[in-house]
Amino acid sequence: MFKYNLIKNFILFFFSISLSINFVQAKVLTSVKPLGFITAAIADGVTDTDILLPDGASPHTYSLKPSDLIKIKSADLIIWVGDDMEAFLPNFLKSIDNSKQLELAANPNIKALLRAGHSHEEESDEHDHDEHSSDDHHHEHHHGQFDMHIWLSPQIARAAAQSIHDKLVVIYPDKASLLDENLSKFTSKLKDTEQIIAKKLNSVQNKGYFVFHDGYGYFESEFNLNHLGSFTVNPAIQPGVKKIYEIQSELSHKNAVCVFKEPQFSPAIINKLVDGTRVKVGEIDPLGMDIELSTDAYCKFLLKIAQQFLNCLE
């Protein structure tokens, strides 16, 4: 038995060392995939880009795994939004050198572009507190002063790309000219993409709709979409009875064309709300689950969201 345990422990130790070695690569790590889209364009030919959250996971509810901690510790740079979005990150990042972190929401140029969000008190009023766990309230608290879904703003994406570029120039000074070129290509493609999307969505700007998760304000404002309301600020928390009644009334009185859900959160309550009405149910993916990292991934991501709006509103 002793010999068996000794061999077993040796194998586990060898496996853990091998796992660590496999993860120790010079790369940039982003918290969510859309930030990875922007980073992959700027870092192209300079370093690899990796994503922390797997497809299907949400930054609102994610918990770090041991393999995630290895990734974070071995990264040359960790790019994230801020603690009002990735509530699971700040405590761990305290042990990581500041020079290896880039908190985008703390950048003055991005901070100046942030939209006001719902307050914690407003969110609390929409739900019955006794229906939720203490963990839900923890996530609920992190949706307050500003809307942190910054990757849905082409304007903020430009500022983020500049910030990522500047940070990478410091880390890889010998690649400065390539980083300059990548930034120029990204901003040019993004400008063209915005024009394409504006033309696409022009015909549906007057069509009203509801979203399950109130996280599309930047995109809606940029392209003048007719957002009538949302079910919840935090998709990890189901709307309360009072909120459901309000939505049912608004669906009938405001002539909504569509209600949008998300692949990360597809509550059955949406189908019940539209039952017996002419309101369609659409789906928007705010994290680009099926889009691969590439130099034009961010533009593909925005175009897909535009098409998802169009498919339901037309």
Rank of each mutant, 00 (worst) to 15 (best):
H149G: 05
Q195R: 10
E122I: 04
P263E: 02
Y209F: 15
K27A: 12
G229E: 09
I110K: 12
V281Q: 13
L12S: 07
F309A: 11
K207L: 14
I197W: 08
D48L: 14
H120N: 15
L114F: 11
S67R: 02
K111P: 07
G45K: 11
V279H: 15
G240D: 07
S184Q: 07
D55A: 13
H149P: 02
H120L: 13
G282S: 14
F212G: 08
F231A: 06
D130Y: 01
L29E: 05
K261G: 15
Y216N: 07
C299S: 13
V259C: 09
F265Q: 02
E123T: 13
Y218S: 09
K100R: 14
I21W: 00
K167V: 12
E123W: 10
A105K: 03
F223Q: 04
F309H: 15
Y216W: 07
A57W: 05
P108Q: 09
D285Q: 13
N224H: 15
M85K: 12
S67K: 02
A236N: 05
A75F: 01
H141D: 07
A75H: 03
D50L: 01
V274Y: 12
Y245Q: 05
D125K: 14
I7D: 10
L102H: 12
G215R: 01
W80C: 01
I291E: 09
Q238G: 05
H138T: 01
N226G: 06
H141V: 06
A306M: 02
L102M: 13
Y62D: 04
P90Y: 08
F14C: 00
V281Y: 13
A161H: 04
A160C: 09
I38R: 01
A105S: 14
E222V: 03
Y4T: 12
E103W: 15
Q264M: 10
F260R: 07
G276H: 04
